[in-house]
Design a protein around this nucleic acid. Sequence first.
DNA 1: ATAAAAAATGAACGTTGTTCAAAAAAAATT
DNA 2: AATTTTTTTTGAACAACGTTCATTTTTTAT
Lengths: 208, 208
Amino acid sequence: MTTATRKLREKEELRQLILQSAKKLFVEKGIENTTIRNIADATDYSVGTVYVYFKDKNAILHDLHTIGFSELGGYFLEISPVDDPLERLKQMGRIYLKFAVENPDMYDLMFNIKEPLKHLAEKENDGCEAWDEGIGTFNILKSTVKDCIDKGYFSGHEEEPLSFMIWGVVHGMCTLEIRKRTKGLKFNRPETILTDGYKEFLKMLDKV
Amino acid sequence: MTTATRKLREKEELRQLILQSAKKLFVEKGIENTTIRNIADATDYSVGTVYVYFKDKNAILHDLHTIGFSELGGYFLEISPVDDPLERLKQMGRIYLKFAVENPDMYDLMFNIKEPLKHLAEKENDGCEAWDEGIGTFNILKSTVKDCIDKGYFSGHEEEPLSFMIWGVVHGMCTLEIRKRTKGLKFNRPETILTDGYKEFLKMLDKV
DNA sequence: ATAAAAAATGAACGTTGTTCAAAAAAAATT
DNA sequence: AATTTTTTTTGAACAACGTTCATTTTTTAT
């Protein structure tokens, strides 16, 4: 059975080659400027081959979006396991911001672009598949917020909507930046508006 | 000169017809599912005519994005001119949220879709045109925040980054919703997560 | 009634995602 | 070693997209 296992490995390797070529092109020239033909060229295979390994473009985008979440997970490893949960929460936000700034295209794919989720909806078993990657990441945030509440922070607040709101703060600022809504504005310090904005949020957290 | 002025009016009328047809199609079937041919059909004119009145698709998207800002301005008229600036700030956020929920496609066009700003960049005089609509709206927010600071709220905070952060909160939650990142998650009360999240932010404001 | 100007047209172009019969390569069988 | 079967790869072809522009139609001026 040595040929069968080898074939399986080769299939997986080509799959990864296509994925990594696509990712490289995305970062180099933007997602919307990358075509299937570009990806095929970059892998030295034909368009038809790409479609053997991926159902359609959305499938590629979904797989790359999943890779993005795994990379975000890598960033989160930086969080020092300090005792104070509020301190961990603050670090989470900072790292989330850092990831978005350093990987704007990946961030966009993970949290803004609709295609990856369309691919989920298409393989509908019961109408709508769950967004596992998003759920997982949100649960990390939510459990940190819960730790805060348990330690006496955020009195009078509710865990889930508070977590969503906190997600909204960082996501909102990241997305305004990535979707060029900060560039068109005339900030006093445009190059640091993201971290400056986040600092204001941290000040609020200290008062709560 | 009666014919010349009538022609001018007729040109403007057709221009508006195209814009309104486009807007209707956007709302009905989504922006990315609306083609120039759709718009031409809806106006009972040909594709070529559309291109007489608009340089390209981005020009249409930009004009519609501007209309969106004017509609948002209409929503803001609801804000009661109450003395307490913090109360006005809270209302602003609520209305911003309401606008986004009631006009998701328009909101997306105004704050997420890149094409309207691409159109701005294309008529570059000096490299990059200013995003007047965004600047105007942000200034309203910023001056309300300034009023708050002047009345003793937000001590220790800086006007501009604080305003950006507040924008981020509401924009972030709206965009997670519009870009289907809340649907994939399993919230306890999915239908009210936006307003619930905003309520958490209001609680924070009351402590600051 | 005729000439000049303006407005509207739709066929055609290049590019996109996608498909699929045919060709090429690899594996299995005799 | 030769042949058959299976797997893999291919790229021409399709429909739909944004866009252009020579031509036609309509309107205005003479």
